[in-house]
Write a protein that binds this DNA or RNA. Sequence first.
DNA 1: CAGAATGTATACGAAAAAGTATAGTATTTG
DNA 2: CAAATACTATACTTTTTCGTATACATTCTG
Lengths: 172, 172
Amino acid sequence: MKVSALEEYGLRCMLRLGRVSEGESLTIHEIAEQEGLSVANVRKLMMILREGGLVQSVRGRLGGYALSEPATAITLGRIMESLAGRMYDPEFCGKHSGDVTICVNSGACSVRSLWGVLDGLVGGVLHRIRLSDLIGDEGKVSFSLRKHLEATIDQLLGQPAPRPHSLPVING
Amino acid sequence: MKVSALEEYGLRCMLRLGRVSEGESLTIHEIAEQEGLSVANVRKLMMILREGGLVQSVRGRLGGYALSEPATAITLGRIMESLAGRMYDPEFCGKHSGDVTICVNSGACSVRSLWGVLDGLVGGVLHRIRLSDLIGDEGKVSFSLRKHLEATIDQLLGQPAPRPHSLPVING
DNA sequence: CAGAATGTATACGAAAAAGTATAGTATTTG
DNA sequence: CAAATACTATACTTTTTCGTATACATTCTG
């Protein structure tokens, strides 16, 4: 449950593309330079994003990459799923239950349920954030998001946190 | 942002320990057999959990492992942090910004903010779930959790989801 | 005290992920 | 058409994670 390099960098590339005017595009070299990444690495990232239908490429002399849709129409959920798939692979239980063919927790697989809930939670949030939300006024999104979360989390289970987990300070 | 094997198995071991009566303990072999894992693997998991102060070990002929506190006092947040650390390592930005010394998104690092928000969100939920919550009536927790989440997520950003992300079906 | 069963610690090998390199294909400019 | 520039695709190397094996220390039974 860690953020992978693919997710981090892939999302950053999408942000770069979202910042240019509609109709314009960026080359791999431009993105690589702006983000301080290697050209080869950006190349790979763009290929993945392209397969996910998130970016379009134009070849040739004046080619480059551009978002396949306006930044207001692309959700972070789509981006993250393209880059890393779902948080909890439903096949996991089958693959990782060891020697036992059926899940050893079968019928009572509370662990599985937990991952499902968390996956739904994160996915639900990500699908409600648009790429454009992360572009405009920086920090504005995260701030409003955080305020909402602080309020709602406290009511989540109707009980106080046994060990309050302070929400992170955003942008210093 | 995927669930790792360590998290999956570690949590399962904790659940096994939480199911035995207080004062009792389980040996590594017992846990391994019950979960269909290798003895060596469980050994490693228990070592990690022990370093996190989550379990206590008794050596010798009648030794074994037991929770260091009652299952009602241990939150999933603590367990997950022991097993995998935080979702988003604050040092990530520094380590992975490539050739550029300062974060290339400095001052406007919206990506960083996003991870922070998600980390706080997941952490906030995990710290509100106790180990005992996952033991009693199976599926009960996940169900009530899900109901809460469905209601609250819809109000999170005060806007409808561009692409509704259906919450997963729990336990079939 | 001796032996057996348990946990502890370190090191090793396999698998996956991350990043790099290279050869190939397409398109525009002159 | 030819060269330059850009994307495409594949294979390779490095790094990290995962799982296993082995040797060692501790403690209870008899």
